[in-house]
Amino acid sequence: MTQQPVALNRTDKPAAVASATKMVIRGVSVYYKTFRAIKNVDLPVYENRITAFIGPSGCGKSTLLRTLNRMNDLIPGARVEGKVLLDGEDIYAAGQDVVDIRRRVGMVFQRPNPFPMSVYDNVAFGLRLLGIRQKSILDEVVERSLRAAALWEHVCDNLNQSGMALSGGQQQRLCIARAIAVEPEVILMDEPTSALDPIATLTIEDLLQTLKENFTIVIVTHNMQQAARISDYTAFLSMDDDRAGYLVEFGPTVELFTNPKEKLTEDYITGRFG
């Protein structure tokens, strides 16, 4: 019996509306010295979609996220095997400019980390790094970014106030504004709401829904409900006996949370893990 597909806003979105693949994680393993933190992960990241990484603590979600803009380079002894393609190009290939990769793949952190400077200077930080000095351009981009981060109304009458004087939720939105000011293609978010209260959390979640129209978003969250609420695709990672994180299941969020294919996923999302 054939059924007419019913357009139910969310259910068909990831599957029915095709989206280009922005990034591909291909056979990626991450080592810290001799310890293997991630083993052999294969995963696509779709353009203008929110992809969530979920899994028990220690499964390497954040580590995997940080391979996407080579933040792991900063950890002495960390080594990445495999490929991470950004628009088809391996960002770990020889001759890749890390600075340029990080400009294209921005990041927002767990704890809001406004720099110890004014709101304006925070947002302009990345722009000045790019060599933009012209006041009119800076003004325009700062305003545009703050508006996109739903913060403009709260700070427009005093852009000289310190970023650290804002509330936690506002600080995180400032960090988002700072990240999008340099017009990245992908934004990585490492548990961006875990330090925020529920209201601020929902504000950020709403913001992500508008941001995905212009950016590709990858978010790590320890809050499954959050992943279910906001993401289009979900990757469930778990830890093997050798404590290496691996991908258990990847799929459209709607499917993963209503009808997961893997028993382990079901056990995890229904809270019957272990």
Binding site: Q225, T265, E266
Partner: peptide
């Protein structure tokens, strides 16, 4: 209880 998957179904 935030049921999911089988519980939710």
């Amino acid at each position: 209880q935030q049921p999911l998957a089988h519980d939710l179904r």
